[in-house]
Simulated assay, not measured.
Amino acid sequence: MSQTKPITKAAIVGCNWGMVHLAALQQSGLELSALVDVDLPRAQSLAQQLNIAHACQSLTQVPEVDLVIIATPAISHMQVIEHFSQQAIICEKPLLGLSANQLPANWPKRLWVNYAFNQLESAQLINRLIQPTQGPVRVQLSSQVNLPLKFNLEQWFLETASHPLSWLLHLLGEPRQLSKQTNEQELKLELACGEHRINIDFTLGGAAGIYHQVRVQQGSQQLQLQGHYIPGQAWRFMPVLLNDEPQNQGEYHESDCWLLANQRSTSLIIKHLQGQLSEAELLAQGGFNPTKALWLEQSLLGEKFNSAS
């Protein structure tokens, strides 16, 4: 295995979404020993509730740890990654976002990016039904978002539509942008992944929440997956349809199937870092190293990023 250095203590940088990873850390037997957040009282309050030894506002105040989870805005990722370059790192997506042109000479050797959509049971089901080596696949991805955060159109794309797109790229391979059209509320992309094609229609506005619809066609097979998040409710995915016939009962859990997928994603990365899973095995199961993670920025920005990983 590629990495057998003991991983026993972790820190979370960014205490909003970052706390989603707590369950995976606990299930993997790691001690969460530090929380870092620009909102120091929030970090201190969480640390007190969860009996975490350190809470701080500065990266320089983090005690010695083996693993750092980065859940800060994408524009800050490079700074945090560079600071903890000697530690193992799990970074939330997007890796660099719209600042992807600022690549380092070399990435830390133990850096992984959390794209969790492939860990949904619905995605795994479709993975078993589609065989990309057996002929061209055609995909239509439609996503809509209406949430009260201050992102522009392309930032919203990388924050939301990148989830199902990451799964599709994992399934079909490295993308090449064929066309891109934008206005204030809508983004259209056409991507080629070898002989496969992905057409994306991303829209701001509409009903509150996040809505995804994926239509996949290969030969005579037509598959469909729809899912949505409504503020105050858990994610819900409708039954996967194969030629209009349900293949499951949908995917929903009171504790949120999306959070469970993230826990599975984080746990797989930790297994690799602990030497229980090779790099090739992690990549095959949906892991994203820096090179693969930048496929998402590549899809949007139309550049091929030559990234050492």
Rank of each mutant, 00 (worst) to 15 (best):
E121T: 14
I269K: 03
G219V: 10
R264Q: 12
G286C: 11
Q79N: 10
N306F: 13
F157A: 05
L98S: 02
T72K: 06
A123F: 14
P73I: 12
K292G: 00
I69M: 11
L95K: 03
F151V: 07
P231G: 08
L277Q: 13
Q249A: 13
A116G: 04
D66G: 11
L168N: 00
N243S: 08
L223I: 07
D39I: 09
E186Q: 15
L67R: 04
L259Y: 09
E251D: 10
I90M: 10
A284H: 14
P73M: 12
I69K: 02
Q27Y: 05
N262Y: 06
I52E: 01
S265C: 14
L191S: 02
Q26M: 09
Q177T: 09
T4R: 14
T60C: 08
L129P: 01
D66T: 12
R176T: 14
C91D: 00
Q87E: 02
F157T: 03
Q274Y: 04
M19C: 07
L30H: 02
A234H: 08
M1S: 10
Q247T: 06
Q274R: 13
L98G: 01
I12Q: 00
N51K: 12
I75M: 10
A208W: 09
G97V: 04
A43Y: 03
D37G: 06
V216R: 01
Q226N: 12
E64C: 09
L260C: 02
A10R: 05
Q221F: 08
H21W: 03
L277W: 04
L168E: 00
K5I: 11
E254F: 14
L296A: 05
N127S: 12
N152E: 06
S220E: 12
N199S: 12
A23E: 09
I70W: 03
G250C: 09
Q131V: 09
A293P: 02
H54D: 01
Q79S: 12
I12W: 03
L96N: 01
E154I: 05
L40F: 13
Q224L: 09
V13H: 02
C91W: 01
R138V: 04
G219R: 13
K292E: 00
A293R: 07
H228C: 06
E245A: 15
L168G: 00
R264K: 15
K5R: 14
N114K: 12
Q217K: 15
D66P: 08
T266V: 15
A88P: 00
G286W: 10
P246H: 15
H253I: 03
N127H: 11
G227R: 10
S162A: 15
F117H: 13
K271F: 02
I126R: 04
C15V: 10
K271M: 04
S45D: 05
F202N: 01
H228A: 07
A74C: 11
A10F: 07
S267D: 02
L268F: 10
E154H: 12
L294S: 11
S309R: 13
A123K: 06
G194H: 07
K5H: 11
P63F: 15
A161Y: 03
S265P: 00
L259N: 08
Q44P: 01
D66H: 15
Q26D: 05
L294I: 08
D66Q: 13
L96F: 13
E297L: 09
L46M: 09
L98E: 01
R138Y: 08
Q249I: 08
K9E: 03
T8H: 15
Q87T: 06
P290H: 12
S255W: 10
L111Y: 03
P290V: 11
Q144S: 12
E186L: 09
T8N: 14
P108W: 05
L103N: 01
V139W: 00
